[in-house]
Write a protein that binds this DNA or RNA. Structure first.
Length: 959
RNA sequence: GCCGACGUAGCCCAAUUGGCAGAGGCACGGUCUUUAGGUGGCCGCAAGUGUGGGUUCGAGUCCCACCGUCGGCACCA
């Protein structure tokens, strides 16, 4: 091999003077700003579509396989970004850039979810119109994200607040409004098909009358009752502190709003609902074909809350009372019944003289907040109605009670109480001295664990708690059903269900926790509903030609909010006040008439239910996305796996949207799929949850957070703020903990490439990690060494040589290439970075840097530090962007060495190391090991019983 | 209480998925350049797989029990 023609200059280290071409933060900034402008000018990140306005079929073919990478839609808050926000954005950017270099046509864009409460609140606080503040906030975000060097297609950046965007949000609402769920076909269909079925008689009307005999108003009511978006007068979550109603998903476990933490009250109100419950089974079943983490799937399953059981009918003086139970097999042990205080039959069941007492109980239950009633540490209360019901399996008369631990919102609002087999019923029976008949003999182990003698196994008065589980049934038989001796609940349930159905007193059924989605908000800053009401108060969807229904401009955009505890206040939508806007003259097909607009707005989640599809075709004026374009970017990849549902190839975001955005978006997508507008049945095929950036936060003695940057001290000394002692706590970086670090500080100190590299190096993308500003310098030093290996710090000239690479470095290079490819593909950027540093450190030790290692190093670094890579690629004499270069490929022959050192264990302990040929067979390896001096000494003359040879890994001698 | 994720060096993290516990970064020590300082160069560093059992020739990795941290759900019949 030839000698290098130049030698590496000594690092300039004379005091004071920093060499003019050292990679400093000032140089980094200059390079970064220059390349960001260059990329924009050259449209470097513009991604071609197969057809339509952004279509360029030739470019699509040249780029390769499609790959749609998506970040969760950011909400542009007034405070701008902190270094925790872009963790996921940098991750997707590195991945997308890597994939562009490995033969993929990558779509990566960023838009803004800008409608909603915080924008409105920020506007109110600052006295500016939300349209103004929102535009400012989006600009700020765009500027901060651009400064990071993210390779987004700028043409595809959308905002939910743009009328050209929400026109399609309204259009999709109309699709949902004009659809019904066909339970037999298990899919949504256009509402016109339902009307056709009624008209033609293929579907029987609810009361059996011919459709033509039903008055028009009733016809409309029947149809409206089937729509997937419908107006309902039902219990909703009223939040006076926010001045609006909110969805179940937006109420925390302790009965408060997730935004603002205000009390939420259950109230009957007339509101828009979305029939998401029709999709419960599909939302549940299709989780199986999604490449999501178990954590998120489990949360969605829990939220949908499907439970299989049976409906059982009990006869009572007020008629049949149906209950839902997951344990119909325990019906013989039902010794009383409990109704929710809100149950409609309670008044009728109250016997003479008990009415007043019962009314009082109901009144006090109604005063309790839901979350108080659900506090399981509270002692159960209840009251006897005086009436009894008949247990259908044994004809026994059992008392009917009312108790607030039974909720009207789940099942049927009535339960059969089986105190021997349900802890809640057990406690209730003990308190009110109700019988606890045994129907299972608990196993001996349970008896001994609960200090019950086996003689008392069927004496429930000796039991401390209810027995829940498998055990042989006793006293569980009637003329047609005999469970006695059956020892498992599965068979018991199946047998009982069959009997219930055969005797017409119940059936196997399924219950869900999921409720329909409350879709209207009494706010200003949201999408108006594309709905008007006629003189009879009937809703009509506006035709496409009248979309968008633009949000009217007004100075009085603040909603009326109330005392957060004023439960009986009433929502007042800001749009209600705009009488000129509300009243419209329209011809909807039967002449010009006066209509009133719907004055609600959609919830913040509406715009994010379909935004990924607008990225695909952002300028299309004829449809929300061209079907061909959707099929190209999101169609099912059955070539990858047969059950691939289609959707975004990689979706990265936080875990906090598990049951909000991710459930709603799946629902909308399935409706659009059913109606034939999209080819994918799921929006997000693969979901990856990035971790959070954590940071120390500090609380003073009042438990109030203080600005972390103003705190002095350390763990040993203790911490102080303005001289007052404070305590350190650990939390997610953010405004609320006052521990945010701005990316602007990092740009000034190190540059964007160093920040990108640091965020990726601190751990795997899905792990939360602490932010340590003092650690960032490590990545800065690496980039300085990389720069110095290629560039003379004094002259700024490229110093690579065209010498051959020595064998050792060449092998290291190929091992690095092999490793980095695999790690980047698996989103493990931290280990990829470690290997690049290792390679660079090895290159530093060479006399000079051969081009043969410099160029692959720059290419491998390009996804991580794109600005620096572009600059170095120029210095290496090229004039194209690094964005679409081919990522290096390892030569497999260079990945294996001829000789290899393997450890030799004796009885599992490493005693020696020997060097053998890599392709040595087991016998040769064994012979070499047994001939080794240290091994001979260790086995001390004993005959080896067994020698285990793991080729290329190790040898273990067992004596 | 139930479900999920996770415990490796002073700190952040690796370990080819059952095969030599250490790749990388920070911190730390030494040293060079410097009047000095460090966002510079070079060299060095120790000890550690949460606890207790089990399987195995061999366990950070698999199994059981427990402890701890984080997240979600919770009178859901």
């Amino acid at each position: 091999m030839s000698q290098p023609t130049t030698t590496r200059p000594e690092p300039a280290a004379t005091g004071g003077e920093i060499p003019p071409h050292r990679y400093t933060s000032a140089l980094a900034e200059q390079i970064e700003l220059r390349w960001q402008d260059w990329w924009d000018e050259h449209g470097t990140f513009e991604t071609p579509n197969p057809s339509g306005p952004l279509g360029d079929p030739d470019a699509v073919a040249a780029r390769g396989e499609r790959l749609f990478v998506l970040d969760m839609f950011p909400y542009p808050s007034g405070k701008g970004l902190h270094v925790g926000h872009p963790l996921g954005y940098i991750g997707t950017d590195v991945y997308a850039r890597f994939k562009r270099m490995t033969g993929h046509n990558v779509l990566h864009a960023m838009g803004y979810d800008a409608f909603g409460l915080p924008a409105e609140q920020f506007a109110t606080e600052t006295g500016q119109h939300p349209a103004v503040t929102t535009a400012q906030n989006i600009e700020k975000y765009r500027r901060q994200l651009r400064r990071l060097g993210l390779a987004h297609d700028p043409r595809r950046s959308v905002s939910t607040t743009d009328p050209q965007y929400y026109r399609w949000t309204q259009w999709i609402f109309n699709q949902i409004f004009n659809a019904w769920y066909d339970d037999e076909a298990q899919r949504a269909r256009p509402i016109a098909e339902l009307i056709n079925q009624f008209e033609s008689g293929t579907r029987v009307t609810p009361d059996g009358r011919p459709w033509a005999d039903i008055p028009a108003a009733e016809q409309q009511a029947i149809v409206d009752g089937r729509r997937l978006a419908y107006v309902s007068d039902a219990p909703v979550n009223w939040c006076p502190g926010l001045g609006t109603v909110v969805a179940n998903e937006e109420v925390t476990a302790d009965g408060r709003s997730d935004r603002g933490n205000f009390p939420v009250f259950k109230r009957n109100m007339r509101q828009w609902m979305m029939r998401i419950t029709s999709y419960a089974d599909r939302l549940l079943d299709d989780l199986d074909v999604l490449d999501w983490t178990d954590a998120i799937k489990t949360m969605q399953r829990n939220w949908i809350g499907r439970s299989e059981g049976a409906r059982v009918d009990f006869a009572s003086p007020a008629g049949t009372i149906s209950v839902f139970t997951t344990r119909p097999d325990t019906l013989f042990g039902a010794s009383f019944m409990v109704l929710s205080p809100e149950h409609p039959l309670v008044d009728e069941l109250a016997t003479a003289g008990r009415g007043e007492e019962i009314a009082a109980y109901r009144a006090q239950a109604a005063l309790k907040k839901d979350f108080e009633r659900q506090d399981d540490t509270r002692e159960k209360t209840g009251i006897f109605t005086g009436s009894s019901a008949t247990n259908p399996v044994n004809g026994e008369e059992i008392p009917i009670w009312v108790a607030d631990y039974v909720l009207m919102g789940y099942g049927t609002g009535a339960i059969m109480a089986v105190p021997c087999g349900d802890q809640r019923d057990f406690e209730f029976a003990r308190k009110y001295d109700l019988p606890i008949p045994p129907i299972q003999r608990p196993p001996d182990r349970w008896l001994s664990e609960h200090d019950v003698s086996t003689d008392d196994s069927l004496d429930t008065s000796a039991w401390p708690v209810a027995y829940v589980g498998n055990a042989a049934y006793v006293a569980s038989a009637n003329d047609g059903l005999d469970l006695n001796g059956v020892d498992n609940t599965t068979d018991g349930i199946a047998m009982t269900n069959a009997w219930l159905e055969a005797n017409g007193v119940g059936e196997a059924t399924i219950s869900y926790k999921l409720r329909d989605w409350l879709f209207s908000r009494q706010r200003y800053w949201g999408e108006p509903f594309p709905i008007v009401y006629d003189g009879d108060g009937q809703p009509h969807a506006l035709p496409d030609s009248l979309l968008p229904v633009e949000l009217p401009d007004t100075d009085s955009f603040s909603p009326r909010t109330f005392d957060p505890d004023d439960e009986f206040s009433n929502p007042e939508s800001p749009l209600d006040r705009l009488e000129d806007w509300v009243v419209v003259e329209l011809d909807l097909g039967d002449g010009v008439k006066t209509y009133r607009r719907d004055t609600n707005v959609m919830p913040q989640w509406a715009g994010s239910c379909w935004y990924e599809m607008r990225y695909l075709d952002p300028t299309n004026e004829n449809c929300f996305v061209d079907p061909d374009v959707e099929r190209y970017w999101m169609g099912p990849r059955t070539d990858v796996r047969p059950d691939h549902p289609g959707g975004v190839d990689l979706y990265v975001g936080g875990v906090e949207h598990a049951v909000l955005h991710l459930l709603y978006a799946r629902f909308w997508h399935k409706v659009l799929f059913d109606l034939g507008h999209v080819s994918s049945k799921e929006p997000y095929a693969r979901l990856y949850n990035q971790g959070y950036v954590m940071a120390h936060a500090y609380k003073d003695e009042r438990e109030i957070y203080v600005e972390a940057t103003e705190v002095d001290g350390d763990d040993a000394q203790g911490y102080t703020h303005n001289g007052e002692p404070v305590t350190a706590v650990w939390g997610k970086m953010g405004k609320s903990l006052k521990n945010a670090v701005s990316p602007d500080e990092m740009y000034a100190q190190y540059g964007a490439d160093t920040l990108r590299l640091y965020e990726m190096a601190t751990g795997p993308l899905d792990a939360s990690r602490p932010w340590e500003t003092r650690d960032v310098v490590g990545m800065y030093r690496f980039l300085q060494r990389l720069w110095r290996n290629l560039v003379d710090e004094e002259s700024g000239e490229c110093v690579v040589v065209d010498a051959d690479l020595d064998d050792e470095t060449n092998r290291l290079l190929h091992r690095t290439v092999d490793f980095v490819r695999a790690e980047m593909d698996a989103l493990r950027f931290n280990t990829a970075i470690a290997k690049l540093i290792e390679l660079n450190n090895a290159v530093t030790k060479l006399e000079a840097t051969p081009r043969a290692v410099a160029e692959p190093m720059v290419k491998m670094a390009a996804p991580l530090v794109p600005h620096l890579a572009e600059e170095l690629w120029r210095k290496l004499g090229h004039d194209e962007t690094v964005t679409y270069l081919d990522f290096p490929v390892a030569d497999p022959e260079l990945l294996v060495d001829d000789m290899i050192e393997v450890p030799v264990q004796v009885n599992g302990k490493v005693r020696s190391r020997i060097t053998i040929a890599t392709d040595a067979d087991a016998a040769a390896a064994e012979a070499a090991a047994l001939a080794d001096d240290k091994v001979i000494a260790a086995i001390d003359g004993q005959a080896p019983k067994k020698v285990i040879v793991i080729t290329g890994k190790m040898i273990n001698v067992v004596v």
